[in-house]
């Protein structure tokens, strides 16, 4: 057997440990799925029987429906803002080099590396100052801030795969900078933009802390509704919603993976030989 100088321990041990770790990482989230089909009204094992009951409850409940609508609205609006600002910023960062580039890239990460509760408190003060307290508009602005790093990083990464000579080729064939951007660069980086946007949307759909600081109790978003559902132990209806969210996440994950493959195919296809 060959020696692996990149591994501190024999390969088989590392492999076994890694498999164990990933299983522990993935399985727990799936626990909610069986409970959501429980015919009983408490969240516990063993399950008394199978039923779709809680899905019906969730669909029929105005509180859950309103929460879902609020979340979708906030998510869509904040994603749009984050995508426009983040894509522009990524195009700017792509023109920078060396130290300036590193500093600007780090600055785009700021919303991710400030502890979220501190950002949420600052948001509370800032929105109170401009009279946007207790509004979904305020939440949109700060969710856009949290989504911004995902979009920027994703687009910067896809721009790195963009072969600069394509830009020159387009110009030599008669394309103005705007035409070259629209017809050559944008189609090639589009998967990166879309992946970043999906990340930003998923983030908004799962965000509790800022939401609990800046929204009014009457405008619960989906995570807030779930949070109170879990705290107040309102039964398996929460697990039904959780299962639906899980399904949504899987869809997101698959779409992003498809986009990533497409983006890589475009990148490798444009490389020399």
């Amino acid at each position: 057997m060959s020696t692996d100088y990149g591994l501190p321990l024999p390969r088989w041990w590392m492999r076994l440990g890694s498999i164990l770790l990933v299983v522990i990482l993935v399985l727990p989230a799936l626990v909610v799925v069986p409970i959501s089909f429980s015919s009983g009204s408490i969240i516990a094992f063993p399950l008394p029987g199978f039923s779709w009951h809680w899905y019906g409850e969730a669909a029929a409940s105005p509180a859950w429906r309103d929460a879902l609508l609020s979340s979708l609205r906030v998510g869509a609006a904040s994603t749009l803002i984050a995508t426009v600002i983040g894509t522009a910023a990524a195009l700017g960062i792509d023109r920078l080099q060396g130290r300036t580039r590193a500093i600007v890239l780090l600055a785009t990460l700021l919303p991710l590396v400030i502890p979220i509760v501190i950002l949420a408190l600052g948001a509370y003060f800032a929105l109170a100052t401009v009279g946007l307290s207790n509004s979904l508009t305020g939440l949109v602005i700060f969710h856009a801030a949290l989504g911004l790093p995902f979009v920027t990083l994703s687009v910067v990464a896809s721009l790195q795969g963009f072969d600069r000579t394509l830009w020159r080729a387009a110009a030599s064939l008669g394309a103005s900078p705007i035409t070259a951007f629209r017809r050559v660069m944008l189609p090639i980086i589009a998967p990166g933009v879309a992946a970043g946007a999906i990340f930003a949307f998923a983030m908004s759909l799962d965000e509790v802390v800022v939401a609990s600081f800046v929204t009014a109790p009457s405008q619960r978003t989906l995570p807030l509704q779930m949070f109170s559902g879990i705290k107040e132990n309102t039964g398996p209806i929460v697990t039904a919603v959780a299962t639906l969210l899980l399904l949504l996440s899987m869809t997101f994950l698959l779409v992003v993976e498809m986009l990533r493959r497409r983006s890589r195919r475009l990148a490798t296809a444009s490389e020399a030989t």
Partner: peptide, 26 residues
């Protein structure tokens, strides 16, 4: 891809899952 899976799952869902797993009748 598998590693990213939990990242895509709601944090609240995962917190709830752990209480379901770890509580005394879990």
């Amino acid at each position: 891809l598998v590693l990213m899976l939990p990242l895509w799952t709601s944090i609240l869902v995962r917190a709830m899952a752990w209480t379901l797993l770890l509580q005394s009748n879990g």
